[in-house]
């Protein structure tokens, strides 16, 4: 049945899976900060990514700014937006015991962003077409998509940057402390609002990066992002909470899983396989695949 399998094919499949999973991973690292510190099921993540993709599109179309050069602009704008979203929408709700409220604000925000985009920029699909769109780099008989490779590089750099930030800077340490134990963090005098604002700013900033990676690789329309919200959530659960690198790796695992199952089973079942694995992980190793089991009381 699989007589056409060769080593090269398998290697290509492997690489494709990793590059594809990076897209999920990029979305997941942003989420890991937001979900990690505030436990918000932030379903509007995907919509924000698409919003950033549109920003990238407009910068490219109107001002001829290359998508990769727009990283600083979009990253910064996204961070400001993130801080704004937190201060404007989630500041009060995060304190509350009831998690439904943050979930619903996220849903409301998703409705709002998706449909604002549809009204302002029409629901027709958009895409960025540059010289390097759909070009690939041949490496020893394998073809590696350029835009996806760039996405991979961006994801790696972002992960490294965020990890360094969390480990080396005082603010970062505070964010990390808060994501591990918010009560204890409060006791040692960390202001939760400050930490949350930072976490949100970085989280949404990473959405900006994900938006750029997405807009160079895919055509998109206002409703394109929802699947990324879900998949990022899964990637996060696979990788384990509170670890940025885990989130990226979770995304890559998810991507590889989908890629392999759509090759060996069939395209339509890839989603079922990834959700099935997700459920199994939730049941048997809810702290994530990559976290060494620590029993929490």
């Amino acid at each position: 049945m699989f007589d056409y399998l060769t080593f090269g094919l398998l290697a290509q499949l492997f690489i494709n899976g990793i590059l594809f999973g990076t897209m999920y991973g990029l979305a997941a690292i942003g989420l890991s900060l937001i979900f990690g510190t505030m436990r918000i099921i932030f379903l509007s993540q995907g919509a924000v990514i698409i919003l950033m993709a549109y920003c990238c599109y407009w910068l490219f179309t109107l001002f001829k700014i290359d998508p990769y050069l727009s990283i600083p602009i979009i990253g910064l704008a996204a961070m400001v937006l993130g801080a704004g979203i937190y201060q404007g929408l989630f500041r009060r709700a995060v304190k509350m015991e009831d998690k439904n409220i943050t979930l619903l604000i996220a849903v409301g925000l998703m409705f709002l962003i998706e449909n604002l985009m549809a009204v302002m920029w029409t629901p027709n699909p958009r895409s960025i077409s540059t010289g390097y769109t759909s070009s690939s780099i041949p490496v020893g008989g394998l073809a590696i998509s350029f835009t996806r490779l760039m996405g991979f590089v961006m994801a790696m750099l972002s992960t490294a940057g965020v990890t360094l930030f969390l480990k080396r800077t005082l603010v970062g340490k505070a964010v990390r402390a808060a994501s591990e134990d918010i009560e204890a963090a409060r006791l040692v005098g960390i202001s939760p609002h400050w930490v949350n604002t930072i976490a949100f700013a970085i989280g949404i900033g990473l959405c900006g990066i994900a938006g750029i990676a997405l807009s160079t690789t895919y055509p998109f329309d206002p409703y394109f992002g929802f699947i990324f919200s879900l998949k990022a959530m899964i990637a996060l659960a696979l990788g384990g909470l509170g670890s940025v690198f885990g989130a990226l790796l979770g995304g890559i695992i998810l991507g590889t899983l989908e890629s392999w199952s759509s090759f060996f089973i069939s395209g339509g079942w890839a989603d079922a396989v990834s959700y099935g694995v997700f459920l199994l992980v939730l049941l048997f190793k809810p702290e994530g695949l990559l976290v060494r089991s620590v029993k929490k009381v």
């Binding site: 929408l89 619903l104 604000i105 849903v107 409301g108 925000l109 998703m110 409705f111 709002l112 962003i113 998706e114 449909n115 604002l116 009204v119």
Partner: peptide, 11 residues
Amino acid sequence: IHPIFSGIIII
């Protein structure tokens, strides 16, 4: 444009 309004009302 109604989903925009629904979104605003929810928030």
